[in-house]
Design a protein around this nucleic acid. Structure first.
Length: 853
RNA sequence: GCAGGGGUGACAGAGCUAGGUCAAUUGUGCAAGGCUCAGAACCUUGUGCCUUAGUGGCUGCGUGGGUUCAAAUCCCACCUCCUGCACCA
């Protein structure tokens, strides 16, 4: 463990430096997405958290009372998994999750895992030097948090923003649970890439009102139907489906039942028996026949398919084979401005490759328009026609839906088949509510986003959001107040947690008891609504005051994957539940971190654990690397070799600081340049910081200023102790431990972590310009010396008259640097000057002429 | 499919919302020199091609077009990579 870092972390802790409470100062409230308790932290977290910490520390120097709290998101799913794996093989826990060996062996329940990991996380955060206020720590599974979430959903329900409905999702009948299909998640043994595909079902009917439900992805082409297809060899059934009679494939029976339909098979039959059956098209009433064809996959969807030869190359081919129909008889729907049947033309273009033709045609038609003379949807763009025809038919009760995975076989980790099941009575958060959308947009309007472009995206995302399923059966969390045994899913329970930290702090510090918290309490704190409180009025008022002081939230940090998920929810819920004056002021999108070009993953075993990295490189070096390695609006590619370079670089800065601190100050003229340059950097740095351009700020603080100081010293100058102190203040948000250490080496007794930003200085442009000329001269000389072959010993410089004096002062420096015997500076106006090659005429302002001899 | 973001020199990564001052900041790597017994670190210089007393020219920022006196920067098409799309946090 790095002794300097350990020392200052302890000092900060002892002095309680980062806990915040109401004061006279302006506040700044920021949070990073509380870590999911799913293992120990890795360097990806380090980046996501060090950036907010840099900002928190910067804001502190700018005089803000910074509130930077902490919580834990415990979903239970991961803890349960870790618990199970450790039970079988504790060594897995150490390798895969970075757990300590003793701990891995000692777990008695998933909750133990959770508690253990929370402790690990908190100590890790502190080891990184994060200036968090850990007195707020709360986990989402603690009872007071649960009360808070329940209150939230009761109020949302009061506002009419919750609704109930059906919902389909992957499910395992044997395990009796929902399966999450996610390539990264280990719940799937086969078909992890599967997606759920939604077919529209259109009801064709025969003369007996028996329904032949065809399944399609392109309902708008229903006007071009020439016939239906069934597979002659497959098994079909006639069954009563709820109150109707349907003819579907045998395969479809189970699927329909899974979707919650009451299916009773009346009669079994072969596809061939349906031959020539006449049915009517639900869209236009026209009569078409059923034609058996072996290409039909009866295991897909309903096993009954509509044939649209004009717009489906397969249909076209089989239709021609089956009927010998003339092309002129084929109706088409989408106006492609082609001479003939679109599918025929495209099929020919693709040399008979039907699959390629389908792809090409669908793409073209998606951007096409429906023919004018088609009823209901004529003239609409294809993309809109789909919704329009469904809306039209469903009104008449002529549609339904059926679902399939995009891959045939999907199995869970026990090898059980995964099916698509309809869950009745699921609760949704109704983000489709227009009034609510309006509020959310209004909220976005008054917010800043980082990067700024995200703000432009948000209204589109808000429009796009629909109902969000809210509750689940698995894992840990808060019980949904309106459905026993169901808990609120993990994203829905973390939308307004920032408002809770003032309360969890009160609980942690013993001011407030968990029993004293109830709905009336929240109503009072957040809405100022009077009611009978279980806690003392005084305590409630204190908390309320603190809430009103720190709220609204100034910055919410979250990963880029939250751009369409958590951030919009966060906005919606704030907009619904809080007064406008408490609406959030900003969101900050954190990009991801990959390692050596690859995504970190537990299964790949390339996870770089936070603790290990700190042990090896030190917190400051990591902070430095992660702040500067790439812009914060980019994914970060962590490379060990790079990390080491940054660690070395940091060491050299420390060495330089040591030298400069022990150096005796002189009062050469060049020091004024040093001051001027620093003043200029300081100003630029502040601009970058205000935009949260962390990398640019780091670049200035670490590299530009360092190069300036190097130049200053090569010119014989010495930075003042004041300048060094100020440089440390600038560095301190990035590398707080090193800065603290050298701050004290300079003889300061306070903490640099709570010092204020260096005051702005006047920038002496004249001296910057004058010195720039010396640099130009050095550049030119470097250039010349390289080209000129023979050794030169004397330098003659000719400058504009007003520039001569400054260059004369610098001549000793030039002489030593290039090892000249003699350096002569003269004005171009000087008639007596030595100038055998007439070089003086080449001099320009800011760029002296040179002659070498 | 829908939505969003990228493709820049050996590498990482700026610049591209306000086109010229961009052969392109900075860092790393590499090369030469210095310092050292030697190495590390450190310092200086160089690092597209050609040319040159400090200059000038050519080729260049995914591909192909276009706008313009002028494009890495604006427009169009294409190729390609990444991310999200809902019970996964």
């Amino acid at each position: 463990m790095n002794p300097i870092e350990a020392k200052w972390q302890k000092e900060w802790e002892n002095s309680n430096l980062f806990s915040s409470s109401v004061s006279e100062k302006p506040k700044f409230y920021l949070v990073f997405a509380y870590p999911t308790v799913s293992g120990t932290l890795h360097i990806g977290h380090a980046r996501s958290y060090s950036i907010p910490d840099i900002i928190a520390r910067y804001k502190r120097t700018k005089g803000f009372n910074v509130f930077f709290p902490l919580g834990f998101h415990a979903t239970g799913v991961d803890c349960a998994k870790i618990y199970e794996e450790c039970k079988v093989d504790p060594s897995k826990g150490t390798k895969k999750y970075g757990l300590e060996e003793n701990a891995a062996k000692s777990f008695k329940s998933p909750l133990d895992v959770d508690k253990y990991l929370e402790k690990r996380i908190i100590s890790a955060l502190k080891r990184m030097g994060l200036s968090i206020d850990s007195s707020t720590a709360v986990s989402t599974i603690e009872p007071h948090y649960n009360k808070f979430i329940q209150w939230q959903y009761k109020r949302l329900n009061d506002l009419g923003y919750l609704k109930q409905g059906d919902y389909v999702l992957p499910y395992c009948n044997e395990c009796q649970q929902v399966i999450s299909i996610d390539a990264a998640q280990a719940e799937i043994a086969e078909g992890a890439e599967a997606e759920v595909k939604e077919y529209e079902v259109l009801k064709f009917k025969d003369e007996n009102e028996t329904i032949y439900p065809i399944a399609t992805l392109r309902p708008e082409t229903v006007f071009g139907v020439t016939n239906l297809w069934v597979n002659p060899k497959s098994d079909y059934v006639e069954a009563s489906v709820d109150s109707e009679t349907w003819v579907v494939s045998q395969h479809a029976v189970e699927k329909l039942r899974n979707l919650g339909k009451n299916v009773e098979v009346k009669k079994k039959l072969k596809g061939i028996e349906l031959k020539d059956k006449e049915v009517s098209n639900p869209a236009n009433g026209s009569k078409v026949k059923i034609i058996p064809a072996t290409f039909v996959d009866s295991s897909e969807a309903t096993g009954v398919v509509m044939s649209v030869p004009a717009h489906d190359p397969y249909d076209y081919r089989h239709y021609k084979e089956a009927t010998n129909a003339d092309d002129s008889m084929i109706p088409f729907v989408v106006d492609m401005r082609m001479n003939g049947i679109p599918s025929a033309i495209i099929l020919q273009k693709n040399k008979g490759d039907a699959e390629a033709a389908v792809k090409e045609l669908y793409k073209m038609e998606y951007r096409g328009t429906i023919k004018k003379d088609i009823p209901v949807i004529g003239g609409l763009p294809t993309a809109k026609a789909k919704d329009a025809i469904i809306a039209y038919l469903s009104q008449k009760g002529l549609t339904d839906k059926i679902y399939e995975f995009t891959v045939k076989e999907v199995k869970d980790r026990f090898g059980h088949p995964v099916i698509i099941k309809s869950i009745g009575g699921q609760w949704f958060v109704n983000y489709a509510d227009q009034k609510w959308k309006g509020l959310a947009k209004e909220c976005v309007e008054q917010m800043n986003t980082y990067p700024p472009e995200y703000k432009k995206e948000l209204p589109g995302i808000i429009d796009w959001l629909r109902g969000r399923p809210l509750i689940r059966k698995r894992g840990l969390g808060t019980e949904f107040p309106f459905a026993k045994g169901w808990i609120i899913e993990a994203l829905s329970d973390s939308t307004i947690y920032m408002a809770f930290y003032v309360i969890s702090k009160a609980v942690n510090t013993g001011k407030l008891k968990v029993d004293e918290i109830d709905d009336a309490f929240f109503d009072y704190i957040y809405h100022g609504k009077e009611g009978s409180l279980k806690c003392s009025r005084e305590v409630a008022d204190q908390i309320k005051k603190e809430f009103e002081y720190f709220y609204p939230l100034d910055l919410n940090f979250g990963g880029k994957e939250h751009k369409t998920v958590h951030f919009p929810f966060f906005i919606f819920h704030h907009a619904a539940l809080f007064d406008k004056k408490f609406w959030p002021k900003g969101v900050f999108v954190n990009w991801h971190l990959i390692v050596e070009g690859e995504k970190m993953s537990k299964s790949k075993g390339n996870v770089v654990f936070w603790d290990d990295a700190i042990e090896k490189y030190g917190a400051d070096a990591i902070r430095f690397y992660e702040a500067h390695g790439t812009s914060q609006w980019n994914d970060f590619d962590w490379k060990n070799a790079e990390m080491e370079r940054y660690a070395i670089h940091l060491e050299s800065i420390k060495k330089m600081l040591d030298e400069m601190i022990s150096e005796k100050e002189n009062n050469l003229e060049i020091n004024k340049w040093g001051e001027a340059m620093f003043a200029k950097r300081l100003k630029a740095l502040e601009t970058e910081f205000e935009k949260y351009e962390i990398r640019n700020a780091a670049s200035l603080a670490f590299f530009e200023i360092r190069n300036d100081l190097q130049w200053l010293r090569s010119r014989g100058g010495t930075p003042s102790k004041k300048l060094l102190s100020d440089w440390l203040k600038i560095l301190s948000p990035f590398i707080p431990h090193v800065a603290e250490e050298y701050w004290h080496k300079l003889g300061n007794k306070t903490f640099i972590s709570t010092e204020s930003w260096p005051e702005a200085r006047e920038i002496n442009e004249n001296i910057l310009k004058a010195e720039e000329e010396v640099r130009t001269l050095v550049d030119d000389l470097n250039n010349l010396m390289r080209i000129v072959k023979e050794k030169k010993t004397k330098l003659y410089v000719y400058s504009m008259p007003n520039e001569t004096q400054y260059l004369k002062d610098a001549s000793e420096f030039i002489k030593q640097r290039f090892k000249f015997d003699e350096v002569n500076v003269s004005s171009v106006a000087d008639k007596e000057k030595y100038d055998p090659m007439k070089k003086a005429s080449k001099a320009k302002p800011g760029k002296p002429a040179i002659y070498l001899e």
